[in-house]
Simulated assay, not measured.
Amino acid sequence: MLTFALAVLFLIITPGPGVLTTAGFGAAYGFRPSLKYVLGLFLGTNLVMLAVMTGLAAVLLSVPWLRTLLMIASVGYLIYLAGRIAFAGSKVSFIAATTAPGVLGGIMLQAINPKAYAVNTSLITGFNYAPDNLLFELITKALIINTIWIPLHLGWLWAGVALHRLDLAPGTQRIINVLMALSMLGVAALALWSTLQEQR
């Protein structure tokens, strides 16, 4: 179980779309407005975990056109979220983003987030520590994942909020927002490249 917990820690703490958007929205909008989005990520993560546990994810992702569609949707949504972060607080009305996405935004990201499926699949199907009691193993894995997931994401949100509270000059805050948005675009590009490599 300890090995599994360490694997959860290292897989979740690494920057992916959920972590980057959590920190980005924390920096752009503050704690309370971003908390609903983190709740959505939490619900979405658990829905993905349930899909992996029941085998639904494996069935869906075995269909090549559906996997490609999910990847395109994921990259498109990441670009949209990156724009929300980059233009947070902008005075230009057609690109202004005055509020962080809510619960539905978080659920949507996890539903199409390739890292969420990859992490959950490796954690749920690997690290077998109770082969004679699958139900016990699945329940305890879900509890361990959530016990680590919640404080890690709240920590990333707090890190973003800490930047927000520094009350930086608007130009400096804009640079930070744009850098976070570019990091998300980098993750999206890596995910797309990885998918294209798999299809060769």
Rank of each mutant, 00 (worst) to 15 (best):
I124A: 08
L163D: 00
L152P: 03
R174P: 01
H153R: 03
S122W: 02
A169D: 15
T125K: 11
K141G: 06
T147N: 01
G160M: 02
I144F: 09
W158V: 08
K115Q: 13
A159D: 00
F136G: 00
L135D: 09
I150Y: 08
H153V: 04
L134Q: 11
I148Y: 09
L168P: 00
N128M: 08
P151N: 08
G171D: 10
W149H: 15
L143R: 01
N128W: 00
V119Y: 10
L168V: 01
T172Q: 09
R165N: 15
S122Y: 07
A162D: 03
A118S: 14
L157G: 06
R165D: 12
L134P: 05
I124W: 07
I139C: 07
L163P: 00
A116P: 04
H164P: 01
I144E: 02
A159Y: 08
I144A: 14
N120R: 00
P114C: 10
W158Y: 13
A130H: 08
L134Y: 03
G126W: 07
V161G: 02
Y117M: 10
T140N: 11
Y129P: 04
R174E: 05
V119S: 09
Q173R: 14
L166F: 04
G171T: 11
G155I: 05
G155H: 06
K141H: 03
A169W: 01
E137V: 04
Y117V: 10
W149S: 12
G126M: 09
I145Q: 07
L135W: 12
A116N: 06
I139T: 08
R174I: 02
L135K: 09
Y117E: 10
R174Q: 11
H164A: 08
N133P: 01
A118P: 03
E137C: 05
K115L: 11
Q173K: 12
W149M: 13
G160W: 02
L143D: 01
P170D: 10
W158Q: 11
Q173Y: 00
P170M: 03
S122L: 15
W149D: 12
